[in-house]
């Protein structure tokens, strides 16, 4: 219990520190937001107001989230490694606290990204959403998986020399089992079609697997 409490305090301290630095640097947030905005605007302009199939729109939304997230998550550990603070952090904090502090920070950054881009996306594509609850639940669960896989991948690629290109290549196959049901559920949320609960359960189950696997593997990095 004491160990859990001490780790929890470390997670909170790391999360608070990352937010402080994130708010002061702003470059990472700005890169994520600008990528999402530019991609959404370009896609919207290219369709020229024509009708776009809900399935195609759902896929586009997740593509925008995935690549915008990639622009931000990749630096989760690399920024610290470049600044030389990662060895100090590893010395003073428990490895699991570092992982979960960073993972929660990434998740909250992705939530902020989605809050920013989702209304713009829906307005620009003039997409009437029929089931907001399903859309939000799908995005919430999808972002958890993306944050878990992204944080571990960011830790893995910290020492790589071509991390910019390597990060999305490694992240994509790991998150694919989340994206496929998430795209399908997002499409359903745009229409009034009935949905199968098993898809949501599948995303939640894969989230759990990713979080557990990240926790186990991080100790070996």
């Amino acid at each position: 219990m004491k160990l859990f409490s001490s780790r929890f305090k470390q997670v909170v301290a790391i999360l608070r520190k990352d937010f402080l630095i994130g708010m002061r640097q702003r470059a990472t947030f700005a890169a994520m937001m600008m990528f999402a905005l530019t991609a959404t605007a370009s896609l919207s302009l290219s369709t020229g107001g024509a009708f776009v199939e809900p399935k195609f729109l759902a896929a586009l939304l997740w593509v925008v989230i995935f690549f915008a997230a990639s622009a931000g998550i990749a630096g989760t550990f690399d920024d610290e490694a470049t600044a030389g603070t990662l060895p100090t952090l590893k010395l003073y904090a428990d490895a699991q606290a570092i992982l979960f502090g960073k993972m929660i920070y990434v998740f909250l950054s992705l939530v902020a990204l989605t809050i920013f881009i989702l209304p713009i996306f829906l307005i620009l594509f003039d997409e009437p959403t029929e089931n907001f609850l399903l859309l939000f639940t799908t995005i919430f669960l999808g972002l958890i998986g993306l944050a878990a896989a992204g944080t571990l991948t960011a830790a893995l690629t910290t020492s790589a020399t071509v991390k910019g290109g390597l990060f999305p290549i490694l992240l994509f196959p790991v998150t694919l089992p989340i994206f496929l049901p998430a795209i399908s559920l997002t499409e359903i949320s745009f229409t009034s079609a009935a949905f199968d609960m098993s898809s949501l359960i599948m995303i939640a189950a894969f989230d759990s697997i990713l979080i557990t696997a990240s926790s186990i593997l991080y100790d070996y990095l």
């Binding site: 520190k17 402080l20 630095i21 600044a83 030389g84 603070t85 060895p87 100090t88 010395l91």
Partner: peptide, 12 residues
């Protein structure tokens, strides 16, 4: 540890 490679946070 106090060592040259153990940096502290410049942005804090």
């Amino acid at each position: 540890v106090v060592a040259p490679e153990m940096k502290i946070y410049d942005n804090l």
